[in-house]
Structures are given as structure tokens and as C-alpha cells.
Amino acid sequence: MTQQNDNIDNMPNQEEEIDLLELARKLWDSRRMLIRWGIAGAVIGLIVAFSIPREYTTTIKLAPEANDGKAASGGLEALASMAGISMGTGADAVYPQLYPDVVSSVPFVVGLFDVNLVDKEGNATTVRQYLEEDTSAPWWSAIMSLPGTVIGGVKSLFTSDDEVAEGDSINIFHLSPKENDIVLALSSRISANVDTKTSVITLSSTMQDPVVSAMLADTIAMRLREYVTEYRTNKARQDMEYAQKLNDEARDEYYKAQQRYADYTDKNQGLILRSAQTERDRLQNESSLAFNLYNQTAQQLQMAKAKVQQTTPVYTVVQPATVPLRPSKPSKVLILVGFVFLAVVAASAWILFGKDMVNSFRNKKVEEKAEPEQ
């Protein structure tokens, strides 16, 4: 009885082995078909790989200056960063974790449109002009965009020239469809990443020209530093401008009081009248008070200037922009392997399942046609 049960338990395993062997036998019998499909996939993969334009990526790494105010809580922030938690300080609204959002924002991207560039052949261009005129796309993109081009052409027939015409200035609040496409294309080619543990900022730009890629990455780093510097020093610069205004007013008032005292002294030399001496003392006191006020505002102005210098962030360039020598994409080997793999998998699915399903469907149709005749 026990031997009979063991034989029953082993039957599914034997059937499974038979099924697997049958599948392997089908694949081996159709190995020529698999080879043909693999060769076809390799040919298609080569066509696709060589049809995609080369892209060059330039990377810049910046290390921001450590803030003394955060030094005391450095250990706690390090533990929080290990746990994936970002501790905000509350004093700075644009902290490094927001730099990727700043770089991808519409105002920042639109500000790069008019940046002057030079390609590898020495031709002068701008970012917008390069994306519109000098950036190529695979041949199938023209086929995929054909319906949209036809629809746009039909719409232009029913749209007045005044509505289609675009002005020289860009309205960030209301971008035209063409400007919006350029913004999306440029924002997909630039990026910023921040390491939460080391606070190292990595900026990158990808273009089809290596020189353009390096120049654009360098411009992005410069613009980001200017943006952060302007934000962090905004309050200090406003205080400095106000201190400068007070200092200028105090200086003018001091010069006027000093001149009044000098004029009165020159006109009333040798007088011993008490009223004349009183007036002279009053003018002298006004001049002294004006000088003291001028001295105080000058000290406040110097402190405001020092505050601006203190709040100005300093970034150390860990890795500067260099012209890339090799393209970053496309990976022709990966594309080739991927297409060959997909072709072999598709051929295997057809051999194992598709052919039987089609044959059974045909047989069923034949049987259905034969039944009415009987």
C-alpha cells in the first residue's frame, strides 16, 4: 500500500519532467528558427543603436561651505541622514535638498535660453538655438510626430497670424507651446542631485555636442551659485543699503553743520558779545552731534558689509567641468543584447505556445464549417 502511494506521488513529478523535456525538444527542433529570429533581432538592434544620436554628459561636483550654526547638531543630523530623514534648520528656505527643484524650475530653465555657447566646430550659438536647430532625433521620431504636425498645420489654417506670432520676450506665466516644448527638453537634459550625508552637489548636463555640454554644465553651476547667493544675502544686502542711505544722510548733515559753524566763526571773529559766543557754541555742538551720528552710521555700514560677506555662501569645486571624450549614451551593446533577447523570447513563445494555439484555432474553424455540411 505504501509503495502504491509513493508511485502516485511521483507521477506529477514525472509528468512535469516529461513536459519540460518536451518543451526543450521543441526548442531544439526549431533551433534554426531561433537562430534566424536572433539574427533578425541583432540586425534591428544595430539599426536602432546606430540611429540614436550620441549624447555627451558633463558632471560638476560642488561642496558647500560648512555652516558654523549647524556644527553643534552635526552628529544628530548625520544620524538622521543615515535613517533617510532630513532635518530642516528653519533659517534657510532654500536648503541643498531643494537644489534639484530649483534647477528644474521654469524660471531657471528659461533663464538658460539666451546663454551663449560654442560647439566643437567653433560655431557660436545659444542654448535655445542649439536645441531648435542643431539637435537631431532618431528617424522614427519624425514618423511618430507626423500626426501632431498635421493637426498643428490644420489648426494654423484657422488661426490668425496675430495669435500664432510669438514675441521676443518670454512670458514665464504663459508659455507658448513651442517654448514649453523647449523647457521640457532642456529640463530633461540637466539635473542636480544632493548627497544627504556629504552635502556634495552633483550637477550634470547632457547634450549631443561635448563642448556644448561642458559649457552648459559650467553655466548651470554658476547660475545656481548666483541664485543661492542672492537668496541668502538678500536680507543682509537690504540692511546694507539702508545703512548706506543713513550714512549718506548723516554725512551730508555733518558737512552742512560743519560748514555753518565755519562760516559763522569766520564772520564773527573778535566779537565778545555773549549772544555771539552762545550762537557759536550751539553751532559747534550741532557739528559735534552730526559728527557723532555720522561716525555711528559709518560703523553700522561696516558691520552691514561684514554681514553680507559672512552670509555669502562659498562653494568648493570638487570636480570642474571638462569636455567629455566619450558619449554617455546610447549603449549599443546593451541595445543589441536586448533586441536579441527579445527576439529569442518571442520566437520561443511562438514555438511553444503560439503555433499550437493557431493550429487549434484553425482546426476549430474547420470543424465548425464541416458540421453544417454534414
Rank of each mutant, 00 (worst) to 15 (best):
18 I>S: 12
19 D>F: 09
22 E>N: 15
22 E>M: 13
25 R>V: 07
27 L>N: 05
30 S>G: 14
36 R>P: 08
36 R>C: 13
36 R>M: 14
40 A>Q: 00
41 G>S: 04
45 G>L: 01
49 A>W: 04
51 S>N: 11
52 I>L: 14
53 P>R: 03
53 P>Q: 01
54 R>L: 08
56 Y>I: 03
57 T>Q: 07
59 T>W: 01
64 P>S: 05
65 E>A: 12
66 A>D: 13
70 K>V: 06
72 A>P: 08
72 A>Y: 13
75 G>H: 09
76 L>S: 10
77 E>D: 08
91 A>P: 06
95 Y>I: 08
99 Y>C: 02
101 D>V: 08
102 V>G: 06
102 V>F: 07
106 V>Y: 01
107 P>Y: 07
107 P>V: 07
114 D>N: 15
115 V>C: 05
116 N>I: 10
117 L>V: 11
120 K>W: 02
122 G>E: 06
126 T>G: 10
130 Y>F: 15
132 E>I: 13
133 E>R: 06
133 E>N: 08
136 S>Q: 14
140 W>A: 03
143 I>D: 04
144 M>R: 13
145 S>A: 14
146 L>M: 15
147 P>H: 09
148 G>P: 06
149 T>P: 02
150 V>K: 12
154 V>C: 09
154 V>N: 09
168 D>Y: 12
168 D>F: 10
168 D>K: 15
176 S>I: 07
177 P>L: 02
181 D>A: 12
187 S>T: 09
188 S>A: 14
191 S>M: 03
201 I>N: 01
205 S>F: 03
212 V>A: 03
215 M>I: 05
220 I>F: 03
226 E>H: 04
228 V>C: 01
230 E>W: 10
231 Y>D: 06
233 T>V: 09
237 R>S: 06
239 D>Y: 09
242 Y>G: 07
245 K>H: 09
246 L>G: 02
254 Y>W: 11
263 D>C: 06
269 Q>F: 14
275 S>P: 03
276 A>L: 11
281 D>T: 11
286 E>D: 12
287 S>E: 07
293 L>T: 13
293 L>V: 12
295 N>A: 15
295 N>E: 14
299 Q>L: 05
300 Q>I: 08
306 A>N: 11
307 K>T: 07
313 P>N: 13
317 V>D: 00
317 V>C: 00
330 P>H: 01
330 P>G: 01
331 S>L: 04
333 V>Y: 02
336 L>S: 04
337 V>W: 05
340 V>Q: 02
341 F>E: 02
341 F>W: 05
343 A>M: 01
343 A>W: 00
343 A>Q: 00
346 A>V: 08
347 A>T: 01
355 K>W: 10
363 N>Y: 11
368 E>M: 12
368 E>T: 10
369 K>R: 15
373 E>H: 03
374 Q>S: 06
374 Q>T: 06
